[in-house]
């Protein structure tokens, strides 16, 4: 299938619903396997850090959640752009279903970060650069959530949220830069695309497994909620009727 064909098919919620069922299940299974492996590996097999001791193990739950909530926001911005320009219904639904996922993940990332900060920095909350930009990200998610709730008409709510998500995505680099430059205490990023990680493999491998796992989880959750949303919006069409009647009760 060429990219152009895929593009046209993505315009059809029906095609997405029927195609993506197995994908959602597959990603869910993959996420479960990877997350269980990575978590056990990180908890039991990976060696403790020579400075931080065992509290270092929090990295295996903190970094994946903190990464995925930023990616989720960017994905939402891209989807918002697609919806505003091409009115692609599926993109609107992506914006809608990603907000709760991203909000939960951001809150979780902040919480685990705070728990990690207690033994490492000696405080539960520190106005450090990355902590602060995560907090701002949480506020951005709050804004999107509140805006969607406040607008009664679904079509308008979709466009308004798409626009706000896009504005947010343009702002995120500026926010990150300004905050980075104002408050810096965090240890440098564990994974960068340009350099090999500075920790030994036995420490970063389980982290990599969990990071991939949490992205699979995002895929599974987003696909599953998208399929629900499609059913809800297209409930008056004949294909949904056939689909539901065909399914075992």
């Amino acid at each position: 299938m060429t990219i152009k064909e895929l593009w046209h098919r993505l315009g059809s919620p029906r095609w997405f619903y029927q195609m993506m069922g197995p994908w959602g299940t597959g990603l869910g299974v993959a996420a479960a396997l990877l997350l269980i492996t990575g978590t056990l590996w990180g908890l039991i097999i990976a060696p403790p850090d020579y400075q931080q001791g065992n509290s270092f193990r929090i990295i295996y739950v903190h970094v994946p959640t903190a990464l995925v909530c930023q990616s989720a926001y960017i994905m939402m911005g891209v989807a918002g752009f697609l919806f505003l320009v091409w009115r692609m219904k599926l993109a609107d639904m992506v914006v809608k279903v990603t907000v709760p996922f991203g909000m939960v993940m951001t809150a979780l990332g902040l919480f685990t970060g705070s728990v990690w900060g207690a033994p490492t920095w000696g405080t539960w909350w520190e106005w450090d650069a990355r902590t602060t930009s995560m907090l701002v990200l949480l506020f951005l998610y709050f804004g999107l959530y509140a805006l969607r709730q406040a607008i009664p008409r679904a079509e308008s709510a979709g466009r308004a949220c798409a626009l706000l998500a896009l504005v947010g995505v343009i702002n995120i680099p500026i926010i990150k830069y300004s905050v980075d430059w104002w408050l810096t205490l965090h240890q440098p990023a564990t994974f960068t695309l340009t350099e090999a990680p500075s920790m030994p493999a036995e420490m970063w491998l389980p982290l990599l497994v969990n990071v991939i796992g949490v992205y699979c989880l995002m895929g599974a959750v987003v696909i599953s909620s998208l399929r629900t949303e499609i059913l809800r919006r297209e409930c008056n069409t004949s294909w949904v009727r056939e689909e539901l009647m065909g399914e075992p009760a």
């Binding site: 701002v136 506020f139 951005l140 709050f142 804004g143 509140a146 805006l147 706000l164 504005v167 947010g168 702002n171 926010i175 300004s178 905050v179």
Partner: peptide, 8 residues
């Protein structure tokens, strides 16, 4: 809620 984070 919408605007203040963007002012940061």
């Amino acid at each position: 809620l919408v605007v203040l984070p963007l002012y940061l």
